[in-house]
Write a protein that binds this DNA or RNA. Structure first.
Length: 572
RNA sequence: GCCCCGGUAGCUCAACUGGAUAGAGCGUCUGCCUUCUAAGCAGAAUGUUGUGGGUUCGAGUCCCGCCCGGGGUACCA
């Protein structure tokens, strides 16, 4: 983590020269252009200007005091006052040799681990999971793994939608229109059919609506028959969710659905009323945010006029439970961007309810999935694309490709490769973009096997594995030092050193695409290295060092991919 | 109406939070498989970053106006 050492020394020097200045935003970053150096800072320019100093003269003063000769060639002052750092060969060598000895993998765990609750996936009972759910699931799982890699304690929680007004209509449908055979074949599809059926029938039909309300009241009052049906719907749904999660290789520490908090809802509202936070308005219990600029016009309802709680109430109870149970320093919600207002309300409301909670709230939202016409995504028939079908298609395409590229592999192995590659492609397609951008769904883009895709990264990994297979029984000697002279070796090695920087950026911004970009670049640098720097045919120290470089690249690739939730394969 | 996102190459997307010449992939064109897996590598072409102003050493990024698209906007989640 050389850049952190540079950064710390730089901050110390600036602090000595300018004691009042806030040095926390004086950062050392990789140079965008290698020709300028390996790392740079541009923070001195702004700092000098804010203090009516000449930036270049100030930079010169800093450089005068800054002793980094252990790591860098003489610092260059460039342009209006950039500092450019160029790594000494020895510093690079030391870092690589340490990693080769297994002392680190170019990142370090946080000295002050935090506890983080991450809420993701959260599908609704009785509705099939579709492509929209995959984003939350895959993003949330990847984020959890990055936090864990950096030493934080993570509690993942799948907040399933298993309680609420939709069960009124579902119960009517179940009792009046259930097709048991269809239920046995595809339970979620059948439940969805029932819901849509009753939903359509209730449109403008008071009698149907009344039946649905009645069934819901009976359920909430603990009617034995309705409770039994409700339980069955949950079991069937969860069974299908678990199938998807198992295919995606995603898991959760907790699965506490909305119903888990049911007994607490009344108490939450009563407390809000007693504390004068909630008040009656138009028959409902409502919280106004008059002192809150952006929420002024958007009060939150915590009890509907019919007396029932809603999702704000449930989410308040959920936050309370999380605070009491895990005392997290941060709670992260991974949902689509349409819920931004809801979470603004929730966070503001919780701040008022429990002012000393000490938690940082973070709504990590993502953009919509659009069709090729740029409108919200639907297939031609109007049906939302099901997740299971998407996964099947991905694996099939990967299987066809591996069978073409490598027909001699046993079918069983090709199947396993297809699974890893196909699922990896889907996950990577979801992770590699900026999560806040809407994205246009396209089968060929999402399932592409060339270009900036998971298979590209996996392929680089298999080439490394292949080299080590060729090595056979020969034991790997650890180089004591790295004397790299080829441009491709240096580029690759220096990129390895940035791994930790990227991981920290990912958890700061909750954006796994930074890690995707990094790994893609790493695989690219490895590709050039692989073409230009023979490994097994090289001799002496060069061979030893290149083998070690391959090994380290493989480790970073594998760690990075696994952290994103992707598996690796030795052959493709 | 108001609020929040967004608009970048023909297409799909990046751009390390205000940095140096805006980058990748797909598609198009040109080379490279008796040598560690060609799902690869090397190279070419492609841009008024929606638009008009402003801020400053420096703007895709920040501020203001306008155009276009999406979402939200009191009892769905």
């Amino acid at each position: 983590m050389i850049h952190l050492v540079l950064q710390e020394k730089l901050q110390q020097v600036v602090n000595a020269l300018m004691p009042e200045a806030d040095v926390s935003n004086i950062l050392v970053r990789p140079c965008p252009e290698p020709k300028f150096g390996d790392y740079q800072t541009n923070a001195l320019i702004g700092l000098a200007k804010r203090n009516q100093l000449n930036p270049r003269e100030f930079a010169a003063q800093v450089v005068e005091q800054l002793d980094v000769t252990e790591y860098c060639e003489p610092i260059e002052i460039a342009g209006p006052g950039f500092l450019n750092f160029r790594l000494k060969a020895m510093a690079l060598s030391d870092s690589l040799a340490g990693a080769a000895r297994g002392e680190h993998l170019f990142y370090h765990t946080d000295a002050e681990p935090r506890t983080v609750v991450i809420d993701y996936s959260s599908p609704n009972v009785a509705k099939p999971m579709h492509v929209g759910h995959i984003r939350s699931t895959i993003l949330g799982y990847a984020l959890a793994k990055v936090f864990r890699l950096l030493g934080h304690k993570v509690v993942t929680d799948n907040h399933i939608g298993d309680w609420g007004t939709q069960f009124g209509k579902l119960l009517v449908g179940w009792k009046e229109h259930l097709d048991k055979e269809a239920l046995g074949q595809d339970a979620l599809a059948e439940m969805e059919r029932l819901y849509k059926l009753v939903n359509a029938a209730s449109d403008g039909d008071e009698a149907v609506l009344a039946r649905a309300r009645n069934e819901l009241v009976k359920l909430q009052d603990g009617d034995a028959e309705n409770l039994a049906i409700w339980h069955e719907m949950i079991d069937l749904s969860r069974h299908q969710f678990d199938e998807i999660y198992s295919r995606l290789r995603v898991n959760f520490d907790e699965t506490l659905g909305e119903s888990f908090y049911n007994d607490r809802l009344k108490g939450v509202v009563d407390e809000l009323i007693a504390q004068g936070i909630a008040e009656e308005s138009e028959g409902a219990q409502v919280v106004f945010f008059n002192d809150h600029k952006s929420l002024k016009k958007h009060p939150a309802i915590v009890r509907k006029s019919d007396g029932a709680a809603n999702y704000t109430t449930t989410d308040l109870a959920t936050l309370e439970h999380r605070q009491n149970t895990w005392q997290p320093s941060e709670v992260i919600y991974v949902t689509d961007g349409r819920q931004q207002l809801h979470f603004q309300q929730l966070f503001a409301l919780y701040d008022r309810w429990k002012p000393n909670h000490g938690m940082k709230f973070n709504h990590v939202w993502f953009g919509a999935i659009l069709g090729e016409d740029g409108r919200p995504f639907k297939t031609r028939s109007g049906e939302i694309i099901r997740l299971a079908g998407l996964l099947d298609e991905a694996e099939q395409r990967a299987f066809d490709t591996v069978s073409k590229k490598n027909p001699d592999l046993p079918e069983e192995e090709r199947n396993e490769i297809a699974r890893v590659v196909g699922l990896g492609a889907i996950k990577y397609a979801d992770l590699s973009g900026n999560r806040q951008s809407d994205y246009v769904f396209n089968w060929d883009t999402m399932l592409a096997l060339v270009g900036n895709t998971a298979p590209y990264l996996l392929y680089a990994f298999t080439r490394i594995r292949s080299i080590f297979r060729k090595l056979g029984d020969e034991s790997l000697t650890r180089p004591k030092a790295f004397a790299l002279d080829q441009a491709e070796e240096l580029t690759l090695a220096k990129h390895l050193l940035r791994f930790g920087l990227v991981l920290e950026l990912v958890i700061e911004e909750c954006r796994p695409n930074y890690l995707c970009n990094y790994l893609y670049e790493l695989a690219g640098h490895f590709g050039s290295f692989y073409e230009n720097c023979p490994v097994l045919q090289a001799g002496g120290d060069t061979r030893t060092q290149r083998l070690a470089l391959c090994n380290l690249t493989g480790q970073v690739l594998q760690t990075g991919l696994e952290t994103l939730g992707l598996e690796t394969t030795d052959r493709m």
